[in-house]
Amino acid sequence: MNWTWFHKWGSPKWFFQKTESLIYWFGFLALIFLVVGLVWGLAFAPEDFKQGNSFRIFYIHVPSAILAQSIFLAMAISAAVGLIWRMKLAHVFVETAAPIGASITLLALLTGAIWGKPTWGTWWVWDARLTSTLIQFFLYLGIISLHQSIENRDTASKATAIACLVGVVNLPIIKFSVNWWNTLHQPATFTLTESPAMATEMWVPGLIMVLGFYMLFAYLVTLRMRSEILEREKGSAWVKAYLEKLNVL
């Protein structure tokens, strides 16, 4: 197999130049998907026979919960790549994805709590999924604070990468134990998104929202990565040329 593409994408300069136009595509697709998904989900999808219109929170809660988990996994894979192949760009991804992941996890928590009020009658239930999302949020916070408190950039990157890997090994165990704990303490109440067979016109906007969230993440993380690359590579000639092109130098 030819691995040149891998090495090319590992080069900060190559990444910076390639994402110049790619980022607009991410932003454009995110906008399209999110607008279509939101309008469809809010105004056109039918209401749930049991939960009524509060079901419409589904179109944010589920995509954000899925994305938050995917970001964690992506960070861990990227952390492994960074540690094994010493690829700086992979570390940049981990560090820039962490705050986005934390904010998306927070969104999943907030929408879950808001959804809980009309469904369960209280703002917070120690439901298995909400609880493990809460712990995942704490994990994100731990990783971010570790990264911020180490001064040396190289040490901070590697330490953060190790923390991500440790977190991802633990995450399935945490999820399992929380599920188990949940069934022990309260006999299975019905979970938010549990429906026997969701109608097509109900889940299609959800799917569009999921795609929109992924595109949004791609857009946001590329945006952040480009800034970090500029700062890390500030001494090189191509950065100078880029600044001159922007008329800021």
């Binding site: 704490f138 994990l139 731990g142 604070s145 633990n170």
Partner: peptide, 12 residues
Amino acid sequence: VLSLLIMPLYVP
């Protein structure tokens, strides 16, 4: 930082 990082891992 240590507490923040480790406490979630102690949950199980």
